[in-house]
């Protein structure tokens, strides 16, 4: 009987240092022996500098999201891949705030993060990426990622298990057919998943003879985060999302199926 191992994988911290602490605590309680972060450390939330020491203290393996690349290189925008003017307006607000408040000492760290992480679990080739293995800001939504396309990604990038984030909504799929394959979007821990609950989501991977994923909701002190966001002058729309669990911005990127489940 092979030894059972557990790993925690999360993404989209978006400066939510309170959720980050809650997720790390939850992962430890569930016996995760290593923790991975799929990028986008800043954006949306308050006090971007607070997440770095937490990640370092816990030895989290971090890869580089589009936000981390942009802040690390001092780019003029976050490269999130929004197409709508309203989405871009809010993206700009949070990017400018985050860029101004991320101390220069963390820029080299952000620049040094790897774009992909590869490892092997139970003989399975595991590939972690921010958006997709081929593009850092590609959105992999459940309703717009057909099996055949995911199979192609696994094939092109030599992987059996693919873990991604960036889009902010968690889902997982075991691909039918001989080739098999597991794809998990671990969601984001920086803001709720547009499901009317205030918890945030991460993935717990269990490995024995195979790799299985469980998507785990985690509660944290969202009132306190909302308070900090208000004090920092972040948009009321963002605060509302934190307190209600419904997205109020970035709605245009959602496929119609995912959007129809939300309030806005």
């Amino acid at each position: 009987m092979p030894h059972l191992r557990r790993y925690a994988v999360f993404g989209g911290v978006y400066s939510n240092h309170l959720a980050l602490e809650a997720v790390l605590k939850d992962a430890a309680r569930r016996g995760a022996e290593a923790v991975y972060c799929l990028g986008d450390l800043g954006g949306f939330g308050p006090h971007p500098d607070r997440v770095f020491p937490i990640l370092l203290d816990h030895g989290v393996h971090v890869l580089q999201g589009n936000y981390d690349y942009a802040i690390g290189h001092g780019l003029p925008d976050c490269g999130c891949g929004y197409t709508d003017p309203r989405d871009n307006h809010y993206a700009r607000l949070s990017y400018n705030y985050t860029r101004a408040r991320t101390s220069e000492r963390w820029w080299p760290y952000l620049r040094s993060l790897p774009p992909l992480i590869r490892t092997e679990w139970a003989g399975q080739r595991v590939l972690m990426a921010h958006g997709s293995p081929r593009r850092v800001n590609e959105f992999l939504w459940e309703s717009t990622s057909p099996d055949a396309f995911l199979r192609r990604l696994l094939r092109d990038h030599q992987a059996d298990v693919l873990l991604v984030s960036h889009s902010g909504l968690p889902w997982q799929r075991r691909l039918p057919g001989e080739q098999g394959g597991l794809v998990v979007n671990v969601g984001a821990i920086g803001r709720p998943a547009n499901d009317g609950r205030t918890e945030v989501w991460y993935a717990l991977l269990t490995v024995d003879t195979e790799v299985r994923a469980e998507l785990v909701p985690v509660a944290y002190d969202e009132e306190r985060l909302a308070h900090e966001m208000r004090q920092e002058g972040l948009p009321q729309e963002f605060v509302e999302t934190i307190l209600t669990g419904w997205w109020t911005t970035c709605l245009e990127i959602l496929p119609p199926r995912e959007r129809s489940r939300g309030r806005f």
């Binding site: 717009t144 990622s145 057909p146 055949a148 396309f149 995911l150 199979r151 192609r152 094939r155």
Partner: peptide, 9 residues
């Protein structure tokens, strides 16, 4: 053919 090529949309 599209299924084999992994078309996305």
């Amino acid at each position: 053919e599209a299924e084999e090529l992994g078309v996305k949309e």
